[in-house]
Amino acid sequence: MKLARLGDGAEIFFTLQGEGVGVGAPAVFVRLSLCNLHCVWCDTDHTWNFQGTPWAHEKDSVPGYRKHRKDDVIIEKSAEQVAEIVRGFGCRRVVLTGGEPLLHEAELLVLMKLLRDDGKDWFFEMETNGSRMPNEETLAAIDQFNVSAKLRNSGVAETLRRKPEVLRGLAASGNAWFKFVVQVEEDISEILDLVEVTGLPMNRLILMPEGRTVEELDRIAGWLAGRCRDLGVRFSDRLHVRLWGDKRGV
Results as ranks from 00 to 15, higher is better:
Val182Tyr: 00
Leu200Gln: 07
Glu137Lys: 11
Arg152Trp: 01
Leu109Gln: 15
Asp187Phe: 02
Leu170Asp: 00
Leu192Cys: 06
Asp218Thr: 12
Gly99Glu: 04
Phe123Gly: 02
Gly199Lys: 11
Leu111Met: 12
Thr213Tyr: 03
Asn175Met: 07
Phe180Ser: 04
Arg204Leu: 09
Arg152Thr: 06
Arg116Cys: 02
Gly222Trp: 09
Val214Ser: 10
Trp177Pro: 03
Lys150Gln: 01
Cys228His: 13
Ile188Leu: 14
Gly169Val: 08
Arg234Lys: 14
Leu243Gln: 11
Glu158Gln: 12
Leu114Asn: 10
Pro209Glu: 05
Glu100Val: 14
Ile191Gly: 01
Leu160Glu: 14
Gly169Asp: 07
Ile206Glu: 01
Gly226His: 11
Glu158Cys: 03
Val241Gly: 00
Lys163Tyr: 01
Ser236Glu: 06
Pro201Thr: 11
Trp223Asp: 08
Met208Ser: 04
Ile142Cys: 11
Trp177Gly: 05
Ala149Lys: 06
Arg227Asp: 02
Val147Glu: 00
Trp244Leu: 10
Glu186Val: 05
Arg116Glu: 11
Leu231Glu: 13
Phe178Asn: 04
Thr128Glu: 04
Thr198Arg: 09
Leu170Ser: 08
Phe123Gln: 02
Arg212Glu: 15
Val214Lys: 15
Glu107Gln: 10
Leu170Glu: 00
Asp118Thr: 13
Glu190Thr: 15
Asp237Leu: 13
Asp143Thr: 02
Leu207Val: 00
Leu167Met: 12
Ile188Met: 06
Gln183Trp: 14
Asp187Ile: 03
Gly155Cys: 07
Val182Ala: 03
Leu231Phe: 11
Asp117Gly: 08
Gln144Lys: 07
Arg132Val: 15
